[in-house]
Amino acid sequence: MEFGPYLLLACLEGAVLAAVLALMASGLSLVFGVMRVVNVAHGEFYMLGAVAAWAVTSMLGAGAVANFVAALVIAPLAVGLLAAAADMTILKRLEYDPERTIVATIGLLYVIQQLTLMTYGADARPVVAPFNSRIALPWVEWGENGLSLYYPWGLSTTSYKLFVIVAAVVLITGLRLFMAHSRAGLIMRATQLDGEMATAFGVPVERVYAIVFGAGAALAALAGVLIVPIQQAHYLMGGDALLLSFIVVIIGGLGSLTGTVVAAILIGMSDGIISVFFSPTLAKIIATLVVALVLVFRPQGLFGAKDR
């Protein structure tokens, strides 16, 4: 395949990763932004979403589309409720102290991971995509008769991968609109800016924290459900996803939703392109190097506020 079509293919792979990463990192960023809690267990909520999707589709036994739609609704809801319960029983007792909550979420990470290993097992298990038709992509070439379209061999994607990209765009746009225009979003932003003052004006801040922690985990679980027809569900799959999410929120600026989305596109696309042309390991090395440079030259991230 020539360079041009090959680059398009790499960009599409990168866009799928960027979409999933943007969803997952938005949850991490939302939790940090509102609660100032660095949730180290976030990757496990992503893994739980994927595992729950496998469980729902296995148990339901309906058609592939019905199974998947049920997983898209049930898995994030269940994971979100679990996270909200973890918030109320663990983080609330620690009074949301930034240092102690890091240790607590590390503990939560291992508890979730080992419980999953004990119940779900060590095998990676697939979930059937609701639709997965191959779509050949056209390319242009300059021939004797001017520009003409042709379909290079191997230049194709699947309808499911395009669905993942569209679903992530719709969900993140919905999240942005919710935060900007709804009364609940206004309360979350007020709590983010000054929790004590929000309390002084009738906002039940601890309830807001439980909802935000649950919503952040539900976003990670949604990402897990969306990725599981492409990658299989495995009890260790949260680790890499957590690392990439941290890379994204550090580059974008902790707590900034815009920064998170921009950084997810940057990291996802570069990962896709470098992985296709060179190697996935080099892609990770470069992403980590970018984080180091951001931490040195712009510690608040690309879109983060300086005093955060």
Partner: peptide
Amino acid sequence: FSELTVAQNIEIG
């Protein structure tokens, strides 16, 4: 709430 508008601060109240 410095990053919110005047109207939004009033709304919180």
